[in-house]
Design a protein around this nucleic acid. Structure first.
Lengths: 243, 243
DNA sequence: TACAGGAGATGGGACGTCCAATGTCCAGAG
DNA sequence: CTCTGGACATTGGACGTCCCATCTCCTGTA
């Protein structure tokens, strides 16, 4: 990590800078005009005229903003300031992860590490803030997961829901979104590579263990069991990557 | 491959799905052809022909992939699989943060929460893995920060560098990138709102405190001081947002 | 050998044209 | 009067063409 300065030709990114500038101008325009989530943007033609660039160019920027979750584009209707949406990251990160799996799956593993750090780092606060209602929600999710496991259905959705609800007490939408992103990336990578044999009951049991620890408000135990959960995921990933 | 299911997509998001599909096709193409970081993609014209869509359309997708950090586009030369790059998230997150700051600054605060959770949750592992060399790097950064503070220069860069190096031992690039993103977003939001009076010496001192705890390998103390650091940031943000 | 500059390739961008999806609104049926 | 269906305007989606801007590489000259 000694290399502090990556060699960069000065003009090498001029084009990127220009197009990034256009995106920024559009965002500034939204902010300056006081538009809020759900409000409509000017039409493509208007923007094109207002910004003094061709419609194609403005469209490229708009597509980027859409991909970044800044705006929502609805064919035949208009463009609107988008509600919080991090699905953008999923594509990029998934690509990254899959690309890395060609080598040793390092990046995919890093992703799990970050997820683990976030979750086991925050479980304590989540337990502190957890109400009976939150706990009931969590239990409901677990029961659904168990039922799905018994029927041999995939647990993916229930798994995601469990983690979402586990941290709902923190009332931190950014966190939920981030964890969702990580989770989706993991799932997509796993899907793309074809999952090995999965033990649904085992999966459900691990989650029940976590739930029990949370119910008992035993932070240390919950944290440790989360760690175990992620260790399992890591192992699965390593197995897939080594093929 | 190219599935013939060109059936009607009556969904409200058919357009989004179509354009997302194109992006995915390009990424699949990269993965299938075994391209690695730095390798060149086909030219825009080739892609346009190969994918059976117009050049403008393919360009829109390519711009998105560029924004997502998947590819790097160099004017007059070609397009290449990009090295890890998270600058994309910065735009989206910054916009989000500024949008929310107009109201209550919730999301900016959430961002701090996530950062705090990540950092104070991972400081333990970082300390475990920290070598003498890492520590020396950290100290160098601190000395630079102190010098800057003495000269009345802004500490922003040194601050970022400190946090980067603090977690370098984990050898997790994704984590470093994420923290960088958060830091940049925070800084941009702060800039956009105009920062209040800052006490440079105080800022440097807080970081020295953290450094001392790390040097002593006192995980609990380091974690606590990190918490204090973020509490300070949170306070500053609240102050700015309330004006 | 070194440097300047041209050639060729490639992305950047602008229009213009037409297609497709969506919401609105009005006419006509009941 | 109410409801329904279709015409219509609006707006984004896509494509083709043309030309410009920029880069790398190679050639030729000093």
């Amino acid at each position: 990590m000694a290399l502090a300065s990556r060699e960069v030709s000065p003009a090498r990114f001029s084009a990127q800078i220009r197009s990034h500038a256009l995106q920024t101008r559009i965002m500034e325009l939204i902010l300056e005009q006081g538009l809020d989530v759900g409000d409509a943007l000017p039409t493509e033609s208007d923007l094109s005229a207002e910004l003094g660039v061709g419609r194609n160019t403005v469209r490229e920027s708009l597509k980027v903003l859409q991909a970044l979750g800044v705006i929502e584009i609805r064919h035949g209707f208009g463009m609107f300031v988008a509600p919080n949406n991090f699905s953008a990251l999923v594509s990029g990160l998934t690509f990254r992860g899959r690309l890395s799996l060609r080598h040793k799956g390092e990046e995919a593993m890093e992703l799990i590490d970050v997820r683990q750090a976030l979750e086991s780092g925050l479980i304590g606060s989540a337990i502190d803030l957890m109400t009976a209602e939150h706990l009931a929600d969590l239990r409901t999710t677990m029961e659904a997961m168990e039922a799905a496991a018994a029927k041999g259905e995939p647990l993916a959705e229930h798994d995601a829901e469990f983690h979402r609800r586990l941290y709902a007490p923190l009332n931190n939408e950014l966190l939920i979104n981030l964890m969702d992103v990580f989770w989706q990336v993991y799932r997509q990578i796993h899907e793309a590579l074809g999952s090995g044999p999965v033990n649904l009951e085992e999966q459900a049991r691990v989650h029940w263990d976590i739930y029990d620890a949370v119910e008992k408000k035993d932070k240390a135990l919950a944290s440790e069991r989360l760690q175990r959960h992620f260790d399992g995921i890591r192992l699965k990933l390593k197995d897939v990557a080594s093929r």
